[in-house]
Design a protein around this nucleic acid. Structure first.
Lengths: 232, 232
DNA sequence: CTGCCTGTGTGTGTTTGCGAACATACTTAT
DNA sequence: ATAAGTATGTTCGCAAACACACACAGGCAG
């Protein structure tokens, strides 16, 4: 299935602004290219910039025990990174990394706070996104507790697809293992099973979704729950 | 017997207000007694009231698959229930239940929204709490993924203690199992082990923390991480 | 006193996932 | 061409937790 091409301003938070409001903050928006693996914040870091992804994809990770981390949230064009600034906090609790390279708008922290104070529609959009993020994190928590690796992998791939607007991404089993908080061998086993069922295909850091419908059936219900929240 | 002006305000959000600000919203605060097991909201319910616990203790649960639920957050005197209202959302994503009976202040949704629009200090307090809640939920997600039942049980008891300000609560293994998302037998085994080590004592729905220090050692590091956030 | 309900202790067999390897491939650099 | 590095396939033994089930004990109501 081919997805249709993207509009220049794909980010939902920015798209929610009226033309006039958008023009006012445009001067402070810098288009940037985010590269895979780039670390935007470490936990506790000061938030110097916020990011509004267009086709980039960002992961929020919670670190535990110095060695292992777990993805708790995924930020695509429906949201933003650095949202703690909207809660009057200058630091972020999450290790925040670029999971899928692409473009985003970047804004310095002071202009963002000013824009937020000035623009009720922006406040509103940010509030709605915060609610969605809260819900997503909670859903992910429950999902990680109750569902098997294969279902979680399927969900993760579908969530990535929805945000990247592509059936095709560049990710190794190793990376997926870190996101899902499981062993690399566990991902290989689950991915192999999904490949056997003609739902996905992959090879050397290259993953493609072949049958999205079938993958949804293989995923846990958490995907459906989260999907409805995404459409905002 | 209403002694509003003289009642001790244990709730941190309310305590953060100046005397003048507090007087202004006092008229809309109703002291209520919350009973164990009471359901404040089901997921998707409209938020008619928000609650500011004093010594009551509230659990936020995410439901999955119709039968199982998982506690993702705990609300005591440091926070409030119904915070989605502060995000312009009229409904809550969480099943919200009373985990420990006690007193709280209740406020109807319209006065709360008005108070929030009017009072910057209240906004600020709510924002900080939202940040803490977001962090807590994410930490709980990672904890549920990586740590064994015994450590999670220890953490849960300590968190409850901090919020209830008591070493002694009324809870069955069955209830704990629902909160932690594990089997009742799993809780019995973990609790038995903690009892053997003289850290806790329990009998027929009665739990007491004997050695809080030892229990901290038995808990995972997630407790320490969350504890620092509580003090705000 | 008796019976019933609730709460806790325990056991068996199964599943999931872990840690730690090792075995293949494919890709790139020398 | 050879070597080194990276990505995937597979295995073994083990620990945690599961589902299901049953036993027993405290406490309350009749």
């Amino acid at each position: 299935m081919l997805m249709k091409s993207r509009a220049p301003i794909a980010n939902s938070l920015l798209a929610a602004l009226s033309h006039a409001e958008f023009q006012r903050i445009l001067v402070d928006l810098t288009p940037v290219t985010l590269k895979f693996g780039e670390v935007l914040y470490e936990p506790g870091d000061a938030i110097n910039y916020v990011y509004f992804p267009n086709d980039a994809l960002i992961s929020l990770l919670t670190q535990v025990d110095q060695n292992s981390a777990l993805e708790v949230g995924m930020v695509g064009r429906e949201g933003m990174a650095g949202i703690a600034l909207a809660l009057d906090m200058g630091t972020t609790p999450f290790r925040t990394i670029v999971q899928g390279g692409g473009t985003a708008f970047r804004m310095e922290h002071a202009p963002f706070r000013n824009a937020l104070a000035r623009s009720l529609p922006l406040q509103h959009a940010v509030h709605l996104y915060l609610y969605a993020l809260l819900t997503q994190i909670a859903q992910t928590a429950a999902c990680n507790r109750f569902h098997v690796v294969e279902a979680r992998l399927a969900r993760w791939l579908l969530m990535t697809r929805d945000r990247a607007c592509s059936n095709h991404f560049q990710l190794t089993h190793e990376f997926l293992a870190h996101m899902l908080g499981v062993r690399r061998a566990g991902v290989t086993k689950a991915a192999y099973e999904l490949k056997n069922r003609q739902l996905i295909n992959y090879s050397r850091g290259h993953i493609e979704i072949i049958d999205a419908g079938g993958l949804e059936a293989a995923a846990c219900s958490c995907y459906e729950v989260g999907k409805t929240k995404l459409i905002s």
